[in-house]
Amino acid sequence: MLEIHDLHVAVGDKEILKGVSLTLKQGEVHALMGPNGSGKSTLSYAIMGHPKYTVTKGSISLDGKNVLEMPVNERAKAGLFLSFQYPSEIAGVGLASFLRTAYNERTGSKIGPMEFMKTLYEKMALLKMDKDFAKRNVNVGFSGGEKKRNEILQMAVLSPKYTILDETDSGLDVDSLKIVSEGVNALSGPNMGVLIITHYQRILNYIAPDFVHVLVNGKIVKSGGKELALHIEQHGYDKVV
């Protein structure tokens, strides 16, 4: 269980999140919706531990362990995964060797390149990615859609317990969105909890959420089922608040 309790987060002197509480269980899909500037991405960065985001109050725990005390890499090893809105480019580093190291860190194993390629190609097929992709440098020269697909590929390889999809739908055309969503659906199951962070309802047509939360001005102002997302789609955020 990923438990976020009364979380306050500041960037510099500015408080962005003003007491957010949310509980994500393995097997559940939650959607966090909100207008621009509501603090959606701040929540995802704070959970993963970006050094610019300071938690001033509240707690995050993962299966009972205090996440806030863990360095970023320990959070990843414990089973947290963040699909970035803007993934970094790592020049000169091949995707396959990068992912193999990440895999070995996450699982504590020492799997060799040959054996790893089998796993990697399997997951790539699932996301309809060409094998050549594995040879490319991490995110270098990738299109927006390729970057997002690559994030989901990493999720597939690392099999996290809890995944945060930060605006994964932004910048994706319909076909890519479909492939990415199908990938998430195929991979999520009783062992993975998913938190979808999005501005629009669109992605929720493909990945059905169990719960929808609306974040406005650093606070969750409303929670409900799938129908809440449709309601927002029809009436806008203003009417919901």
Binding site: H50, P51, N73, I90, V93, E105, R106
Partner: peptide
């Protein structure tokens, strides 16, 4: 870049070494 790599399980030292390695590739 550091945050991205660490979010994938790389320690800070590993992440810097990987970036340097890529730079020299």
């Amino acid at each position: 870049q550091l945050f991205y790599l660490m979010s994938r399980g790389f320690s800070e030292e590993m992440a810097i070494a990987l970036i340097v390695r890529g730079f020299m590739e």
